[in-house]
Design a protein around this nucleic acid. Structure first.
Lengths: 153, 153
DNA sequence: TACATATTAATTGTGCACAATTAAAACTTG
DNA sequence: CAAGTTTTAATTGTGCACAATTAATATGTA
């Protein structure tokens, strides 16, 4: 437990300046390390982690606009457009303009993307095993992160 | 609370496939959103978040090899080398080979980097205010993330 | 209807992030 | 000491991530 009552000074002894006393660094590092733990499983399917997230949404909804994908994933079109174009090239999904609103681009699940659902569906379990984390701890951490996420929006 | 005893099926109703029931997505999204919350504060100093992390370490140690920086930040030379070269150009730090081991590159804090310590030292407090999070919740989340981090290494 | 405003993707440019490879230097061991 | 192994950064190539800008379309309003 860190001393939060300590005086805040610019010198090196300020505990708030230590990486692991902050919230952001453990968050940043854990996110990268956990994504890296997905890597060997995703690689078998030729997927990156953000591409896997797009497929998770398409398996649930089968059609979504870029805007809707961005709202779910908290990513903007500058990230999604090139990513979705790469996925289109692999024929995992299709991109077409909405007939009623030419500004919107509708992303649709294609058979090759549907075909990844079976193998990919085992990934969450495999990661839970890999984490070897008590369920209570997993659920508590996840809930706190979702809570933080709502605070940050 | 999610039903962890549910049968694991590849269909869309599998709760493990929903983004917010997983650990990785909230982690990934919260990390990006929190880094984004740093952005306006860091921008005043011309820093990016990973560059700020490098400075936090240099304010504490004043000299570190690339390897040591990488160990603290969990980043490899492919990420650090170009980042450190950009910081060298700004004269925040220096890069030189270790005399006794020519393979190692020693990163040293320069006066311009030292000068950022004063203003940057207020950033953690400002973010705590911005988060408006109960201290217990902050500490609990931070500790769980540090714990997860040790699990992942 | 015309005009201003808002919405939506795409584009552009910069900066990570990381896997894989390369190359140099240091160490180990026969 | 020489040959092989290990360590350390750098390099290369791909893929995000996001700020800022652009352009097309849609909407609201006088």
């Amino acid at each position: 437990m860190t001393d939060f009552a300590a005086p805040l000074s610019p010198d090196a002894s300020n505990p708030l300046l230590r990486l692991n006393n902050q919230l952001c660094f453990p968050l940043y590092a854990a996110s990268r390390m956990l994504t890296k733990a997905y890597q060997p499983l995703l690689q078998e399917l030729g997927l990156t982690y953000p591409q896997y997230l797009v497929l998770l949404l398409l398996w649930e909804h089968s059609e979504l606009t870029v805007k809707e994908l961005g709202e779910h994933l908290l990513l903007d079109s500058g990230t999604l457009t090139p990513l979705l174009k790469r996925m289109e090239q692999r024929q995992w999904l299709s991109r077409r303009r909405a007939p009623h609103d030419e500004r919107s681009v509708i992303i649709g699940l294609q058979p090759a993307g549907e075909a990844l659902r079976g193998p990919a569906c085992r990934i969450p379990e495999q990661l839970l095993t890999r984490l070897d984390m008590p369920t209570e701890e997993f659920v508590a951490l996840r809930n706190q992160l979702n809570h933080l996420l709502t605070r940050l929006q």
